[in-house]
């Protein structure tokens, strides 16, 4: 058989979503990244569409273990579009599906990484961390609530994508761009706020100039409070722009410089 008569039910969507939420990346590896995860999360449905022990199923299983890597916050959008095709065309959809997966994984990886991998953790992580610094765990619970909402979004997108098909990608694009832009504004704003509260360092040195002691920190405070933290962040920003600089290296450079300046009595903890 080449055409399948199987129609996906809500039970199938439920099963795919469970496997996606709790198992999609367990097999992540350097060679094919989420390849085996993709096969795993739709395997029961593939078996229903093509039937066990058919050459079609074997061939499709091989297609689905190929290299795949996208944001695990958007992966079921690709799954939904893929399964809608396979359900209609069966094995004839093989090439289309392979192309579709390869074509969509990049864009969704970029959007997903920036919104869910970077911006959401920034905004809620910043909130949770600054509350934690005062000994207050409430921010962690706010973050958990936000992630539950995100997981609801991950859950509903599969059926939505299955129904809308490929046209979904273009309609989503504009909306996602606007949301990303708004979220980056909040992200940038929060970084500004964090620089002002969470980098707790000040000048400790009070040099004597012609018999007059110069309180550097007090003078800086008159310009604007927390100028030194802002300068430190600016300096590290510049450092990170240098060639061959990694975040881990930057962390150790900061460690060494801080110890040196502190030992020399130039800076101290606020």
């Amino acid at each position: 058989m080449t055409k399948s008569n199987y129609k996906l039910t809500d039970k199938d969507f439920h099963q795919i979503n469970m496997r996606s939420l709790f198992g999609f990346q367990l097999g992540w590896n350097y060679e094919r990244m989420q390849g085996s995860g993709y096969l795993y999360h739709i395997l029961p449905q593939l078996r229903k569409i093509y039937g066990d022990n058919t050459p079609e199923l074997k061939s499709m299983m091989k297609t689905h273990t190929q290299f795949f890597n996208t944001s695990n916050f958007f992966n079921t959008i690709i799954t939904g579009i893929d399964l809608a095709l396979e359900e209609k065309q069966g094995i004839d959809a093989q090439e289309t599906v392979a192309g579709l997966k390869a074509g969509l994984m990049g864009p969704f990886a970029a959007i997903g990484d920036s919104i869910f991998g970077s911006l959401v953790p920034t905004i809620f992580g910043a909130l949770a961390a600054s509350m934690a610094a005062q000994g207050n765990p409430v921010g962690i619970f706010i973050w958990i609530a936000a992630q539950i909402a995100v997981n609801v979004f991950r859950w509903v997108q599969l059926k939505f994508a299955y129904k809308e098909g490929i046209s979904l990608v273009t309609t989503m694009q504009d909306k996602l761009n606007a949301i990303t832009d708004a979220a980056t504004i909040m992200g940038v704003f929060m970084v500004g706020a964090l620089v002002a509260t969470m980098v707790n360092v000040k000048f400790a040195i009070v040099p004597q100039i012609g018999g007059v002691s110069l309180d550097i920190q007090n003078n800086l405070d008159m310009i604007i409070p927390r100028l030194l933290p802002a300068a430190v962040v600016g300096a590290i920003y510049w450092l990170l722009g240098k060639k061959g600089m990694t975040s881990t290296r930057a962390i150790f450079i900061v460690l060494v410089v801080c110890v040196a300046l502190s030992a020399a009595g130039v800076i101290s903890k606020m």
Binding site: M198, V199, N200, V233, S247, A250, V254, V259, A263, M270
Partner: peptide
């Protein structure tokens, strides 16, 4: 010095 560094390290994250 390490205590001061601990207080400055978040700056790396922001950068």
């Amino acid at each position: 010095g390490l205590t001061v560094a601990g207080a400055v390290l978040p700056a790396v994250g922001f950068a």
